[in-house]
């Protein structure tokens, strides 16, 4: 039986009718057409589908959509401001070559955001710990780590 969920999506309230078995990822991508959030594995093992739920990272591919009801969800589309200005993390990713194929990038950027929101000056070890749930096959992570360091002024 379909149920309606209401949540704040990238700062705006939304109301969606969903079937109970749908994941948050399916609702975001298929119903709300926010395809910036990627599916890399569907099992919570790669982090490509990372979104922020009440400011914390979750793997949306194994997160029941109904549990988003009443919460606040941020996807990569919500990170740029209304005028299309990039977030400093996005700028750093571009500047430091932290992006190759780009498939892991939206999830990686959101993990970086959650990390920096919690800890403005993470050590390199803390950065690695914070993004360890986001697999990347192209970059070897090093330029990503540099980009995150740069945003935190290190």
């Amino acid at each position: 039986m379909k149920q309606t969920i209401n949540f704040i999506l990238n700062g705006e309230p939304v109301s969606v009718e969903v079937e109970p078995h749908l994941t948050l990822l399916q609702v975001l991508r298929d119903k709300l057409e926010l395809t910036g959030t990627k599916e890399g594995c569907g099992m919570g093992e790669c982090g490509a589908c990372t979104v922020l739920l009440n400011g914390k990272t979750v793997n949306s591919c194994i997160f029941p959509a109904l549990e988003a009801d009443g919460k606040s969800v941020m996807t990569i589309e919500g990170l740029t401001d209304g005028q299309g200005h990039l977030h400093p993390i996005q700028k750093a990713f571009i500047e430091y070559g932290a992006i190759q194929c780009g498939f892991c990038t939206p999830g990686m950027v959101l993990s970086a955001k959650a990390l920096l929101d919690e800890n403005t000056k993470p050590t390199e070890e803390e950065i690695r710990h914070g993004i360890a749930g986001n697999l990347c096959r192209c970059t070897g992570y090093l330029q990503i780590i540099e980009a995150i360091k740069a945003v935190s002024g290190q």
């Binding site: 919570g44 982090g47 990272t57 979750v58 793997n59 990390l115 749930g133």
Partner: peptide, 8 residues
């Protein structure tokens, strides 16, 4: 797991 897993 990962931060994402541990959050949930």
């Amino acid at each position: 797991g990962s931060v994402q897993i541990r959050n949930v």
